[in-house]
Design a protein around this nucleic acid. Structure first.
Length: 264
DNA sequence: GTCCAGTACG
DNA sequence: CGTACGGGAC
């Protein structure tokens, strides 16, 4: 009985992770709330920037019920600098659901606000240690290049390690534009994309973002920053951006002032 | 100027 | 299915 080469490659990947995988703070816990916080923070935000926020959030709000007892405005203010403040609002809303109804069944994770297909799978893999592979853009790229026949699955009981390893490998070696195949990638042996030299063609082209300077994003961000620092802003300073924040539940309007959401 | 562990909305 | 959403880092 022979073992498929791709299965051996995944074993090699997991051994590499055990040996050289970075010691990120959220990897020291299987606490489901902590995993949810880290995953939402990591949505569209680089690892290095998340670390200090993760530690301060878990210190301030160690359980979902603790965040649920704070206001949305406190969550949004503590998010300052992480980007996409709706994720802070979503996390607060999810904490409220969890505080009221308990942690949901694994099949209902996507019912939590702000939890989509990726984050639901990440919770199953990293919190529940179920044998699923969370597919973010990096992991999809690694699978497309290295396992064109499909993900062969993780060794029994090593799904968590395999998932973490695929994330790290996608970020460190199998990068979108300039992959570092020959710089020690543990999946380099037997990689069809690297062998064929078609690595760049496999990569989906990311859509160009609109100019940030002068955008509604920047204007909203400016108001939220002032809100976090001063606790209030004149609506008249940017009525359009203020309305947009209120419409999304990221701030409240009190007369001519914009105030933190849910503040007393 | 480009990139970044995605999601929700029309 | 296309689009909007932050802002620091390289």
């Amino acid at each position: 009985m022979t073992v498929a080469p791709d299965v051996l490659a995944v074993r090699r990947l997991v051994r590499w992770f055990d040996r050289e995988g970075p010691d990120l703070p959220w990897r020291r816990t299987r606490d489901r709330w902590a995993v949810l916080v880290s995953e939402v923070m990591l949505q569209a935000t680089p690892v290095a920037r998340v670390i200090p926020y993760y530690e301060s959030w878990l210190t301030r709000w160690p359980r979902a019920a603790d965040l649920a007892a704070s206001s949305v405005g406190d969550a949004v203010a503590a998010w300052q600098g992480l980007g996409y403040p709706r994720r802070a609002r979503n996390l607060h809303a999810a904490a409220t659901v969890i505080a009221q109804s308990g942690w949901p069944d694994a099949s209902r994770y996507q019912d939590l606000p702000g939890v989509g297909a990726y984050t639901a799978d990440a919770l199953r893999c990293f919190a529940d240690e179920q044998p699923v592979l969370p597919e973010d853009v990096n992991v999809r790229r690694v699978v497309a290049r290295r396992f064109p026949a499909g993900w062969p699955g993780a060794p029994r009981g090593r799904g968590w390690h395999a998932g973490q390893a695929m994330m790290d490998l996608g970020r460190e070696f199998c990068r979108a534009r300039a992959p570092r195949c020959d710089d020690g990638c543990p999946l380099r042996p037997g990689c069809p994309a690297a062998d064929a030299g078609v690595v760049h063609e496999v990569t989906p082209v990311t859509r160009r973002q609109a100019r940030y300077e002068g955008s509604m994003r920047q204007r909203r961000g400016f108001l939220l920053k002032a809100l976090a620092e001063d606790g209030r802003v004149r609506v008249s300073s940017d009525p359009e951006a203020a309305d947009s924040l209120v419409a999304e539940g990221l701030a409240d309007r009190r007369g001519s002032l914009l105030v933190p959401a849910g503040s007393a």
